[in-house]
Design a protein around this nucleic acid. Structure first.
Length: 362
DNA sequence: TAAGAGCACGTGTTTACATCA
DNA sequence: AGTGATGTAAACACGTGCTCT
């Protein structure tokens, strides 16, 4: 489904945007606004896919199945004409909030780069992860698996009724004081990822099995209703930062984030799902509001034109047929679909209209 | 080429929790 | 301080599309 809509001073109203004419789209945007709907990918998806493509260029070592899927998604999406970006200028805060592609030095998210492994070996640096102390009853099969694998935290099955974690983010979220950037924190994440790689081969399948419906729910496991855990501000902020980088995660990224935040991979996955849903909902609201305004504008314009038409008709009936005043009509140029103003000179001697003289120039 | 499994994701719903009057 | 209404977000269930075998 494609939809193109154009308002403003653009000389080419209501024609489907030419997929290959970026400059024209830009021109239209400059003049007024343009919008298009196509496929299901929003700008963030496209941005992410572009990033992933660039990542693939940089990192040729990541050949897991999911990455293949991403590659195929990217390639398949680029084969047909790309879905048009929904660009609701001038007020589309959600889209405007989409971060521009970072500079090349920061663009990719090398979760598992070889350099990283080399760096770990050279620096002999211990893996730095968040020191998270789960206080609520979050123990399940996955947690046990992760704790066994990571050895970072001890199982805590005491259901204290606390709804959230007590976390010590001093290792990373000292950033506000120490000035560590998100990319610096990302680096910590990468280090954790490398460590995680050692065990994820054995834990991934088990965790996935338990996290995707095949596993026991909390209720099944301990006979209590599941305790919904509120993520801390720090956890949410970190996830938000990650989401700004990538709106979707591959399994390794998910694992790394989960490890870093001491969450279950399922939690990270769910968070990203919900986050995408929220983004889409927001965007839908913005689009809806904007289309409503468009509708109002067009209704008003239609009303005005109808009125004008009525006046012209009234004028026509009141004027003699042989009036010398040239009639003005609107015709559409079949070649470029532009609306052109043509004038015909009506005379008493020539009932047939003369060849119209068009003011439209190609 | 068809069929089935596995997976990721979107979407709608449920529900725990926080906030406010 | 206690309580109900309401909003938010985590978690879940289900369907769909894609890939691989």
């Amino acid at each position: 489904m494609e939809l193109a809509l154009s308002l403003g001073d653009t000389p080419k109203p209501f024609s489907l945007l030419d997929h290959h004419s970026r400059s024209q789209q830009q021109k239209m945007k400059d003049l007024g606004f343009c919008m298009g709907l196509g496929g299901s990918k929003n700008l963030e998806d496209l941005h992410f896919m572009n990033t992933m493509r660039e990542k693939d260029d940089d990192d040729d070592d990541d050949d897991d199945a999911h990455q293949k899927t991403e590659d195929k998604k990217s390639s398949s999406s680029s084969d047909p004409p790309p879905p048009l970006q929904l660009d609701l200028l001038p007020f589309s805060p959600v889209l405007r909030s989409v971060p521009p592609p970072p500079p090349p030095s920061q663009r990719s998210f090398p979760w598992l780069s070889k350099n990283l492994i080399a760096e770990m070996g050279s620096q002999n640096k211990p893996v730095q992860v968040l020191d998270v102390k789960p206080m609520a009853g979050v123990s399940d099969h996955q947690d046990n698996m992760e704790e066994t694998a990571g050895g970072e935290s001890s199982p805590n099955n005491s259901n204290s009724g606390t709804s959230s974690f007590q976390m010590d983010f001093s290792s990373i979220f000292k950033s506000s004081n120490s000035g560590r950037s998100f990319h610096s924190r990302k680096r910590d994440l990468e280090l954790a990822t490398v460590n995680l790689e050692l065990v994820e081969a054995t834990t991934e399948s088990d965790q996935r099995a338990s996290s995707r419906g095949g596993g026991m729910s909390d209720e099944d496991e301990n006979g209590l209703t599941r305790k919904k855990l509120r993520l801390t501000k720090e956890q949410s902020a970190f996830l938000e930062d990650s989401f700004k980088e990538h709106s979707t995660l591959n399994p390794k990224q998910k694992q790394a984030l989960a490890k870093q935040l001491n969450l279950r991979p399922r939690q990270v996955e769910v968070w990203f799902q919900n986050r995408r849903a929220r983004t889409k909902l927001k965007q839908t609201e913005v689009d809806c509001e904007y289309l409503k305004r468009c509708c109002e504008t067009l209704t008003e314009e239609n009303r005005r034109l109808q009125k004008e038409l009525q006046e012209l008709r009234a004028l026509k009936t009141s004027q003699p047929f042989y009036m010398q005043r040239p009639a003005t009509t609107l015709t559409m140029c079949p070649s470029c679909e532009r609306v052109a103003t043509t004038t015909t000179t009506a005379t008493t001697t020539t009932p047939r209209p003369q060849q119209p003289t068009s003011s439209h120039r190609h």
